[in-house]
């Protein structure tokens, strides 16, 4: 119903729009034109309607008028430019001043967001209204609707995280994340949300780490070129005392993939990091690990990940110098100051 109402309003808009300068109820206000100075730069070809509305907006801003009609005026102004933070800020001041019921405001900003889902100001306005209301009950379903149109919308995720954190609404979030990952295992925003939820609820305790590793390895086996899953794997391993190389199931999956002929650059990159860990551990065969790492870097630089050849060459040099440097130290030779 509400939607049908607003669209018929839009139709009227085109044909029956009355400029503010012709409205009797605004006769007492003198419009204030924009003062660009004598030399307008980046002058925008405003429509007559835009100019008229903003002339009156500047007038109420100047006189500090906080009235019903001024509130309506901000709506008209935002209709033409929802990115005008001054108008939003002033609208909030009017809402406060008039002590308005905020539920209709929530519905209004919902419509504006649906038309402008990637706009900072509209999302911020919604957040302030929810803060004022101290009522998050519409937010999860609302952000879900927006994310169903674009499952990676940054603003929607930011709003959702704020609501979940502020009002402690973590309960069903992992289920939602699972559902999004079923739709698109490559949705990095969903992976990030998974990390966010766990980090703020159970934390990455040993049993959670095990469970997350198992989950992620399953996904990696299915789509080996999915960077989101590999990045999440590293994220989880940050919380494992064994690091990258000491976790049996991770090692096993990597080795199986490699010996089955898989040469995903993400797999090879992970293997480089395992070698690096072995180099840094005191007990391992440094020379052998270095040899393997350099070989992998060469494969990446020259065949499997050539776009990143500079990076892989750098990693190979860096590792080599680290090993050779520490050998020099170990053999007691005075290390010449290489940084001079």
């Amino acid at each position: 119903m509400a939607e049908a109402g607003s669209s018929s309003e839009e139709l009227c808009d085109e044909t029956n729009w009355v400029f503010y300068k012709y409205r009797v109820e605004w006769k007492d206000v003198t419009p204030v034109p924009q003062d660009d100075g004598p030399y307008p730069i980046v002058a925008i070809a405003y429509s007559e309607k835009f100019q008229d509305i903003y002339d009156y907006f500047r007038a109420v801003l100047k006189s500090c008028e906080k009235s019903e009609r001024a509130l309506q005026l901000t709506k008209d102004a935002l209709d033409l430019n929802p990115a005008n933070y001054t108008v939003w800020q002033y609208r909030r001041e009017i809402l406060k001043h008039l002590n308005k019921d905020l539920i209709p405001e929530l519905h209004y900003v919902k419509e504006v967001i649906e038309d402008n889902p990637k706009n900072y100001q509209v999302w911020h306005h919604r957040r302030v209204i929810v803060e004022w209301l101290q009522d998050p009950s519409y937010e999860l379903s609302f952000t879900k609707t927006v994310l169903s149109q674009d499952s990676k919308n940054y603003h929607a995720w930011q709003h959702r995280q704020w609501v979940i954190r502020t009002f402690k609404l973590f309960e069903n979030e992992l289920q939602y994340v699972d559902h999004l990952l079923e739709d698109d295992i490559r949705n990095n925003s969903a992976w990030n949300q998974r990390y966010f939820v766990i980090n703020n609820t159970t934390g990455f305790k040993p049993d959670v780490v095990e469970q997350e590793l198992a989950f992620t390895l399953e996904k990696i086996k299915k789509v080996t070129n999915n960077e989101s899953a590999w990045n999440y794997l590293r994220g989880v391993l940050l919380h494992h005392s064994g690091g990258l190389s000491q976790v049996q199931n991770v090692r096993k999956v990597c080795e199986e993939l490699y010996s089955s002929g898989n040469r995903s650059p993400l797999l090879l990159a992970f293997l480089v990091d395992i070698c690096e860990e072995n180099i840094e551990r005191a007990d391992g065969d440094k020379a052998d690990s270095l040899h393997q790492a350099v070989q992998l870097c060469d494969m990446l630089a020259n065949e499997y990940d050539t776009i990143r050849r500079e990076y892989w060459n750098y990693i190979a040099r860096s590792l080599t110098q680290r090993v050779n440097g520490s050998e020099e130290e170990a053999s007691g030779s005075t290390k010449t100051d290489l940084n001079c």
Partner: peptide, 24 residues
């Protein structure tokens, strides 16, 4: 051309005019 005149489509950047100057 943009430094002096911007078409109507730039109305949505009416609150970013110093940005328009800087970008140009």
């Amino acid at each position: 051309k943009s430094l002096t005149y911007l078409p109507n489509a730039y109305q949505c950047l009416d609150a970013s005019r110093p940005w328009l100057c800087y970008w140009i």
